[in-house]
């Protein structure tokens, strides 16, 4: 019940051994060329030009091909040609496992079908993000997986509200924050009322009654919930080519004054209405 990649799914089910998976990954690493390596291998760029692109990438967050076009080293057409070659020669993990003898080729379609069924609950549904917000696809994944985890883990019945841009996060019983870096520099918040916090605690601790638990234990369960949600978001983001690092969760706004969205940042709120009351909220503040 988590976002996985195919190799992990097979190891978990003891269909392939960890040793053979590693062998297949090594094979993939040797066959699947990165954009720059592919462009070099077909002499579309020179080593000196590749170095220029690498240097320029240190000061601007652009992919190799986009940077090469920006610097006038490649035309748009040439970039597309390299991408097509990369795509056509890509060795997928399933194929690599067949090549190293971990799977029989006739077994592969069946396991891929089983994997798709396993991952079906994590197919992202559309969430409307206000126009002009950067990294909209990432925030769509973030909101949708947060909703799905509230349903699957906490078994919360709710109605998601429309995403809105906010300048402030109002105080609540527990607000947990986690930093995201890499493809974005943002802060992810889960803000919950006491009732929703208890539901999270019951789910995480696997206890029917958590009324006797201390507040720090209850807060710890909200931190763990945020950690699980964001870990799965990072896995889903990696599938669309966005590498997101997540940092440890912490309880914030302990003095209950609320949190202002800093100037120059965008605050996105995804209200979660529970029994006619807005008690849970997933918020993203991107710097």
């Amino acid at each position: 019940m988590a976002v996985k990649f195919f190799g992990q799914f097979l190891v978990e089910r003891n269909i392939v051994s960890r040793e053979l998976l590693l062998k297949a990954i090594e094979l993939q690493d040797s066959v699947n060329l990165k954009f720059g390596e592919m462009a070099l291998s077909i002499s579309m760029i020179t080593p000196a030009e590749a170095e220029r692109v690498n240097e320029a990438q240190k000061s601007e967050d652009l992919r190799f091909g986009d940077m090469a076009v920006k610097l006038g080293i490649l035309t748009e057409e040439q970039m597309k040609e390299v991408l097509t070659r990369q795509k056509n020669s890509h060795l997928y993990i399933g194929e690599a496992l067949v090549k190293v003898g971990a799977l029989a080729s006739e077994e592969l379609p069946r396991y891929l079908d089983e994997f798709k069924t396993d991952q079906a609950p994590y197919v992202v549904d559309h969430v409307a993000i206000p126009a002009g917000v950067p990294h909209a696809a990432l925030w769509e994944i973030t909101a949708d997986l947060t909703y799905k985890m509230f349903t699957r883990i906490v078994q919360l019945t709710f109605r998601p509200g429309q995403c809105e841009i906010i300048n402030r996060i109002e105080p609540n019983n527990t607000i947990v924050s986690m930093r995201m870096s890499g493809a974005t520099d943002a802060e992810y918040f889960i803000s919950v009322s006491g009732g929703v916090r208890e539901m999270i605690a019951r789910a995480i601790l696997k206890e029917d009654d958590v009324s006797g638990e201390q507040k720090d234990v209850l807060d710890d369960t909200v931190m763990e919930f945020a950690n699980v949600v964001l870990g799965n978001i990072a896995a889903k983001a990696a599938q669309i080519g966005k590498d997101v690092e997540i940092h440890p969760p912490e309880v914030v706004d302990t003095d209950g004054t609320g949190i202002d969205v800093p100037a120059g940042s965008t605050g996105l709120a995804f209200p979660i209405h529970v029994m006619d009351e807005r008690v849970a909220l997933c918020v993203i503040v991107e710097r």
């Binding site: 988590a2 190799g7 949600v229 870990g231 896995a235 990696a238």
Partner: peptide, 12 residues
């Protein structure tokens, strides 16, 4: 044990 198990690089 990790919530990042689904990130291929971390698993590997």
């Amino acid at each position: 044990v990790t919530s990042l198990g689904g990130v291929g690089d971390k698993f590997t």
